[in-house]
């Protein structure tokens, strides 16, 4: 694999909680511009891996490289600055702020105004602020929830909240957009339109990492897929290959807790 096409590379990452091993020896790489899917039965360690990549957990062993830079134990905000943006499995919006404000907060990491700028509201701050609002509106339009821009996040519908989370993540200008079960709780129509949104995002040049329960969605959308089971990677490759992998079939048949 050529190095410059690799955006994220995990080398033997492990994570332990107390004595329990949630991840062990996971190595994988995500290429620039692809949609990479991560599947596995419940409790396979998908979200743990996800939290390690986004800095919410520190890996117990191993390290990962992102955009040519090595990271071992890093705070989420540093990784966000480096270009990793995420959504959450159980939506975590800023509930009492408006949809627009939620997306504007995503711009925080790409803007600079400090206390002095806020108090003086000088030209640079005003321009920056205007650009933030503009970009936020653009992103709301992009994910298709332009109308309720002034609605509090908590009053949005479930599908809108999922989209808002994506818009907020996109606002950080990510290189890698990491989505934790974005289709959870969605009906078929919503899932279909989510799928086309994700394709649009990928086509705009952003790499997407997707954790999903919905195997059909993953298979139809992802360029490559990795399968986790009991904290270990048991398969990786293009969807057709993975689908036929006997270990994967065994894992899903044997350990399906749904």
């Amino acid at each position: 694999m050529m190095v410059e096409t690799t955006l994220l590379k995990l080398s033997s990452v492990g994570k332990q909680f107390g004595g329990l091993s949630a991840l062990s020896d996971v190595s994988l790489h995500i290429r620039r511009g692809e949609i990479y899917g991560l599947i596995g039965p419940n409790g396979a360690g998908k979200t743990t891996l996800f939290n390690v990549i986004t800095g919410l957990y520190q890996p117990s062993v191993g390290e990962f490289q992102f955009n040519g830079q090595g990271y071992q134990a890093c705070k989420p905000h540093v990784l966000a600055r480096a270009g990793i943006a995420r959504t959450f499995q159980n939506i975590r919006l800023f509930a009492n702020l408006t949809a627009l404000e939620n997306v504007m907060i995503g711009r925080h990491v790409r803007t600079r105004a400090g206390v002095l700028g806020a108090l003086l509201r000088n030209r640079a701050t005003r321009n920056e602020e205007r650009a933030v609002v503009e970009r936020a509106r653009e992103l709301l339009r992009y994910v298709g929830i332009e109308k309720p821009a002034q609605t509090l996040a908590k009053h949005l519908s479930y599908g809108e909240q999922r989209r808002l989370e994506i818009a907020r993540a996109l606002a950080t200008d990510p290189l890698l957009l990491a989505l934790d079960e974005p289709a959870a709780g969605m009906n078929a129509t919503e899932t279909a339109s989510l799928k086309s949104l994700l394709q649009t995002i990928r086509d705009s040049g952003i790499t997407v990492l997707l954790i999903e329960h919905d195997v059909k969605l993953i298979m139809g959308l992802c360029d490559r897929v990795a399968v986790l089971d009991y904290g270990k990677k048991i398969a990786e490759g293009i969807p057709e290959e993975v689908r036929k992998n006997p270990d994967v079939i065994a894992a899903y048949l044997g350990a399906s807790h749904d």
Partner: peptide, 24 residues
């Protein structure tokens, strides 16, 4: 302002705020 919004983000959800790049 940018600062005020970051404060409110922390108030609403600290984990999400830090995932958005805010040094909480």
């Amino acid at each position: 302002s940018r600062i005020g919004r970051a404060w409110m983000a922390i108030r609403e959800d600290e984990i999400a705020a830090s995932a958005m790049g805010i040094n909480t």
